[in-house]
């Protein structure tokens, strides 16, 4: 049965498991993955290479069979052949690798695929949406990598999907092309399209996603809105500055530590103060500096960025999948902690 109402989520994944067997042994690509995606939401899957992002996505798309667990996409089961045939009409898929017939033109490929859907978008509209109007009559093989990628996105959009999967949609884009892709995603969400994407760029997740989930070693280690992922919004404020000339660390009015990740030329000069009471601490620090006539060069007041949180969540597991039991689960938010 189709499910289009907003009462149930667009995607529900519960205890999803998938193990690959190859010559080297077995690889558990998904070890009990659970998450929901609401209708109209932009949901981002983050994680190192080999963490299980694409495996999870391919199971949702129906191109890979799961070992166990429950998966409902628009109320349908992508693991069932009959449901998958219905899903293909309602879901747009942009795979990680671009693959389009090289000898057709942009508008020919789109016109060909538009005929597969009952209510396609007009192809001129799709071409404009992805910014390929000037290349409409160009053969696919003459397009640049970024332009082919945009054509790939256009093919995902031409059937007017309710749900769009984007597997690393902007990898290899230059900064302005990425901004263009982001604007496109924002435009689609205004039209009500639900979007599930994977990305390696934290600024992309920050800019696009309503919620993110971080997958490490086949498990979700944190999920939530990017602004509050893993308690990021409640984390200590970090105040950093360069020690003023002639001042030692011990002379400061507050205890400060040397920044461990300072660049070579600032080694031992860049100090930091982590605090939960940023306003009084800043007041004391700047008051001290004013009274003593000190400059606070390179002063920054920051909370951990999404990237900082991501790196601390994935840090120990930066190389694919760790052996079972070797990793402590990092601060995990309850999976229902959505906005």
């Amino acid at each position: 049965m189709g499910q289009t109402g907003n009462s149930s989520p667009a995607i529900r994944v519960e205890s999803l498991r998938k193990t690959y067997r190859n010559r080297a042994g077995t690889v558990e690509a998904a070890r009990g993955v659970s998450f929901d995606v609401a209708h109209g939401e932009v949901f981002a899957l983050l994680g190192p290479n080999g963490a299980g992002k694409t495996t999870t996505l391919e199971i949702l798309e129906g191109s890979l069979a799961r070992d166990s667990g429950t998966v409902a996409v628009l109320g349908l089961d992508p693991g069932s052949r009959a449901d998958l045939n219905r899903l293909r009409k309602r879901v747009g898929i942009v795979l990680q690798e671009t693959a389009v017939e090289p000898y057709l033109t942009v508008s020919e490929v789109l016109r060909r695929n538009a005929a597969y859907y009952s209510n396609p978008r007009p192809i001129e509209e799709v071409i404009e949406l992805v910014g390929l109007t000037e290349k409409a009559k160009a053969r696919v093989k003459t397009l640049s990598g970024g332009q082919q990628r945009r054509l790939d996105v256009a093919l995902g959009l031409v059937g007017r999907p309710e749900l769009l999967f984007l597997d690393e949609p902007t990898t290899g884009f230059d900064p302005s092309a990425r901004r263009g892709a982001w604007a496109l995603v924002h435009g689609l969400t205004r039209l009500g399209t639900t979007i599930v994407l994977t990305t390696h760029y934290m600024d992309e997740a920050q800019a696009l996603a309503d919620r993110v989930a971080v997958i490490v070693g086949g498990e979700i280690v944190a999920q939530g809105p990017p602004d509050s992922l893993a308690g990021r919004d409640r984390a200590a404020t970090r105040i950093r500055f360069r020690l003023p000339a002639g001042v030692r660390r011990e002379d400061l009015p507050l205890p400060a530590t040397t920044a461990a990740d300072a660049p070579e030329d600032l080694r031992d000069q860049l100090v930091e103060i982590d605090t939960d009471d940023d306003v009084p601490v800043l007041h004391e620090l700047t008051g001290w500096a004013l009274r003593g006539g000190h400059d606070l060069d390179a002063l920054t007041v920051d909370r951990p960025s999404l990237e900082d949180v991501y790196l601390s969540l994935t840090g120990s597991a930066a190389t694919a999948i760790p052996p079972p039991g070797s990793r402590q689960p990092a601060a995990t938010q309850p999976s229902g902690a959505a906005s």
């Binding site: 129906g62 293909r88 795979l95 693959a99 389009v100 695929n113 597969y116 059937g159």
Partner: peptide, 12 residues
């Protein structure tokens, strides 16, 4: 080239 897989994801 992945063209078959891509086509398989459409309703064709």
């Amino acid at each position: 080239a992945g063209i078959l897989k891509r086509l398989r994801s459409t309703p064709l």
